[in-house]
């Protein structure tokens, strides 16, 4: 595409680097911004800058945080005996949205994938082990994605925590609620049969 201005071209280039945004959408965003009042654009720029300058990762759980220790870790209202291990901050948000879990989190920052050069040392696994050894946790829930890398990482963590006196569980796998069995893929349906749960009346 030919742009009449280098400044616009640069802005489009920068925005089209976002996931899911192509040059056309980027151009629409640029044109939109041009039409907005200056203060509003300033505010946007500022809030973006703050992401990089002020935002921290929690020293305890590695979740994204405005302070040294995040609100969840600090909260006296949460169950400090339950810990949920997740891959990244988006997973924390997803689980928080369920309102079904009131324990603490530990964000790994990825999963073990040698093909992508990610080993246990580049993840927050050592800090997890230390946290369990020094804390008063009763249960660790490993909530990673049910794929090859996620499952490998789950096994690795469970092995690392074998000697700690804490109960380890993983999130259950199966049919999504409101769906229909006949449309479920064989793996999921097979797993939900083999991992069936007792039904009590």
């Amino acid at each position: 595409m030919n742009y009449s201005s280098k400044i616009i071209e640069n802005a489009v280039k920068a925005l089209s680097g976002f996931p899911g945004i192509g040059t056309r959408s980027a151009l629409r965003m640029v044109v939109f911004l041009l039409k907005r009042p200056k203060e509003e654009v300033n505010q946007l720029a500022e809030s973006l800058m703050l992401l990089k300058t002020t935002l921290k990762s929690c020293r305890v759980c590695h979740n994204i945080s405005d302070e040294e220790v995040c609100n969840i870790c600090k909260s006296p209202n949460r169950n400090h005996r339950q810990l949920c291990v997740v891959e990244d901050m988006q997973d924390v948000m997803a689980i928080e949205n369920t309102a079904q879990f009131n324990g603490l989190y530990h964000v790994l920052g990825g999963v073990i994938a040698p093909m992508d050069g990610v080993g246990p040392d580049s993840l927050n696994i050592n800090s997890l082990v230390t946290r369990i050894e020094n804390g008063h946790f009763e249960e660790v829930i490993i909530a990673l994605n049910p794929n090859v890398e996620g499952d490998t990482t789950t096994f690795y963590i469970a092995r690392k925590l074998k000697t700690a006196s804490v109960q380890i569980s993983t999130i259950s796998k199966g049919i999504s609620i409101g769906s229909e069995l006949e449309f479920a893929d064989e793996i999921t349906l097979g797993k939900s049969i083999s991992l069936r749960v007792p039904y009590q009346v």
């Binding site: 073990i112 080993g119 246990p120 490998t152 690795y156 092995r159």
Partner: peptide, 20 residues
């Protein structure tokens, strides 16, 4: 390969793959 490159061995990570 990474074990050889970094001269470092972690039996648990290998076990994690083996097991799966």
């Amino acid at each position: 390969k990474l074990f050889a490159d970094h001269q470092h061995f972690d039996s648990i990570i290998l076990e994690s793959f083996n097991e799966r």
